[in-house]
Every structure is written in C-alpha cells, then in structure tokens.
Nucleic acid binder design. Sequence first.
DNA 1: TCAGTAATTGAAAATGATTTCCATTATCAA
DNA 2: TTGATAATGGAAATCATTTTCAATTACTGA
Lengths: 171, 171
Amino acid sequence: MPTRSTDLGLALSEVEVPRGFGRGPRWWCANFQDAGFRITLPRQAILEALTNNSTKHLSAEEIYFEVHKRYPGVGLTTVYRTLEILVNMGLVFRFDFGDGKSRYELLQGPNAVTHHHHLVCTNCGRVIDYTEFIEQEKGLLDKIEKVLSEKYKFNIKSHQIQFSGLCEKCK
Amino acid sequence: MPTRSTDLGLALSEVEVPRGFGRGPRWWCANFQDAGFRITLPRQAILEALTNNSTKHLSAEEIYFEVHKRYPGVGLTTVYRTLEILVNMGLVFRFDFGDGKSRYELLQGPNAVTHHHHLVCTNCGRVIDYTEFIEQEKGLLDKIEKVLSEKYKFNIKSHQIQFSGLCEKCK
DNA sequence: TCAGTAATTGAAAATGATTTCCATTATCAA
DNA sequence: TTGATAATGGAAATCATTTTCAATTACTGA
C-alpha cells in the first residue's frame, strides 16, 4: 500500500499523475532543495492541494481545509508559511480581489494556469477567468514586459489584468 | 477670513483651484447629493487630501494622517467610511499591491489619474506607474472591455494591469 | 430663520486575516 | 544512526478594517 504515516497522524498517498504531462507529482522538489528548503510532508500536502485545485482561486484557509481532508495534522500557520515560500519562489501567484483575503494560483507544475486575467464583481466578489484575446494580450504584454524590464531594471515574474465592475445580478 | 470652525475643532480653508481645470474644488458635491449623501466637513477634507495627492498611492491611514494635518478632528473610521462611498461611486479606485493594506487613487476630479498600470516589487513594495504603451494598451483594453461587458453582462467600471517582480535593489 | 429628523460622526470594541513566538518534532548530511 | 538545525503546530500577538453606539450635524420643510 503506497501510504506511510507519521507521529502527526499524517498520511501521504501517491498522487495520480495525468498522462501527457512531462512532470510528475514531485516536480517542485528540485526548486525546494536548490533554495535550501526541506521536503516535508506538510509541504507535499499543500502542493498537492494546489495542484488539484489549480483552476480555482483558493484562499489560505480554503487551502488549509483542502489539505486538512487528507492530512489533518497540518496547521494553518504552515499553510501560510509554505505559501509565502512558494510565492517568493515564483511557483505560486498571489491575487487580491478586494475581499480582504489573498488568493493563490499555481504558476508552475502539471496543472499550472498561465493566464491570470480576471473580471471581478466589486459587489459580490464573483470572479470570471476570461480567455478571450489571449493571443493579442500576450503579444502586447510580452513587448511591454521586455521594455519595462530593461528600463526599470526589474526582474518581472508575472503580470495580471483585472477588470472590475458589477455583474449582471449586482448591477 | 475664509475659515470657519466647528465644535469638533475642525477648520475648513478655501482650496486653491489650479487654473486651467474646468472643475473647482467641489466638483464631487453633485455626485454626493445625487446619491443621497450629505456634504460634510470630513468628506470635504478627505477629498481635498485625495485631490492633493493624486499621484501617490495612499493607504487609508496615510490619507488619515494627511487629513489630520489640517483637520485634526476627523477620525480614521470616517476616512474608511468615506473611501468606501467613493469607491462605490466610482470616484476612487482601490488597489492592492500585496502589502496588506489597500491603496486609493482618484479616478475623477481636477487631478485625476486615468492610467492605472503598475510595476510592483514583491520584495520591498516599490511601485512604479509606467506610462509606456498607453495608446496600444488603451486600444486593446477598450476592445476587451466591450466584448467582456456584452458577453458576461458586466458593467465594467475600471481595469488595471500589474507587473510583479523584483526591483534592481531586491534582485 | 428654525426646529425636526435622519444621516453622520468619533471613540472604543470587535473582527478576521495573517504573523510571531516558542517548545517540540522531523529532515537530511555526515 | 546521529546531531545540527530547519520546520512544525498551537496559542498569542498584530494589524487593517468594520461594527457599535451615543452624541453631533446637515438638510428639509415650515
């Protein structure tokens, strides 16, 4: 049985790897070790949760609940700490839709979402990931990124476009 | 003397109106009254502070300090309440650069900034308002806004573009 | 001009997301 | 296997923002 347990009452199962992706469930291990971080069970659990929910915009607490389903020993503090590491490493992007809590999305990995363009209702908080104009946006954004990187000496890691307004119900 | 005082110890001075702008210091009064809100001294002070600092990205507390210089009787609670009204009316835009506090910028009025495109350092929090590519961005964004408004039945009020990364010092 | 009335206010308390503290536990290089 | 040290979880602390509430104020109609 591909399960092992620890004193904390955690259990790590093997993750199903979708066919067609070049990188397995532990694609991030090299990132961690190169940066001097250790591979721990809580971190594996958190990355598993992020990978399995890459199309959602989970908050830290929602990630905690998600992790908690399978690894009840992992604490909310560790979720926050791990997310900070992941954001700093550029593996995860932190969004803010104005509802007072940060939201997180995988930037790299087997289920990474690469397009972070949103339509946000400022009243009810509904978020739509729109995928129209990807190509046109990409062309312009790449050009802008190149120019800004050089002019302002920034090492640009990501970008976002956000339209805000009122959705049909809230108008 | 163009100053009057109240029981709260407030003092409202006349505001210098820059020549060349079509709208005076009270351009927002109609917005407030049409929406059923009253014109009060604290609200005048807060709009004055926003107008005089339109190129900065002030937090609620910074706006409070700014207001406090001339109107020491105005409380932080009122600053928050007024900002919420202004954001809902579309006169002010609320940003979040990831440092845990919201930032506010005038969308309308004599000193309004219309271009909300930023380059943010995720380490030190430095924010650069870049003005390159305004025309090209505008063309594409207007087109996207039109299509998204119709498709998703949104009443879009504003947009933002944000590039995140590390500045020269933090690399 | 002058109340009457409901909106607005400031201070203090409450809230809620995130961080810090610290004693315990787990990872991994030697 | 072991020891140094990184990582952990729970509790407490922090900090931005919101709520509560009694006092004050702005605007309405007389």
